[in-house]
Every structure is written in C-alpha cells, then in structure tokens.
Amino acid sequence: MDILCCPVCKGNLELVVAREEDEILEGGLICHHCDFTYEIEDGIPNLLPPELR
C-alpha cells in the first residue's frame, strides 16, 4: 500500500478489501479526489489511469 498512489493526481488511495487470504486478493483502491476506484483482482492492483483502460 505504501508504494501505491493515484496514477492521475498522485494522491492517497483508500484500500477496500473484498477477499483476503494472507494477502489481499480482491478489492479496490479508491481515489476520493478523482472519484475513481482502481481494482485489485487476483492479487494484482490495476493502477492504469482511466484513459488507458
């Protein structure tokens, strides 16, 4: 978590955990400033900005 930030505004992300087994497998990283959620799927956070998706 401490190495991740919003790829657009570089602000802090709020972590939301949906499924966890030793590590976070499913969840989201919310940027409240940009009003966008970067999802975590299969343990991989996807920090591509919206325009690259």
Binding site: D2, I3, L4, C5, C6, P7, V8, K10, Y38, D42, G43, I44, P45, N46, L47, L48, P49, L52
Partner: peptide, 26 residues
C-alpha cells in the same frame, strides 16, 4: 498475471502491480 503466477510457483514474495511506468507508484 503470468508474473504473479510465476511468483506463486516459486513461493516468492513478489508484489506485482499493473501500471504505466511510474504512474501510480510512490
């Protein structure tokens, strides 16, 4: 996905992140 699978196969504590160069990293 492949890198994470390879980390699991080798019991490696590797953090994998999908990103465009440094955007999203700090």
């Amino acid at each position: 996905a492949l890198a994470r699978g390879n980390a699991q196969k080798n019991d490696a504590a590797l953090d994998v992140v999908r990103a465009d160069l440094f955007h999203g990293l700090r």
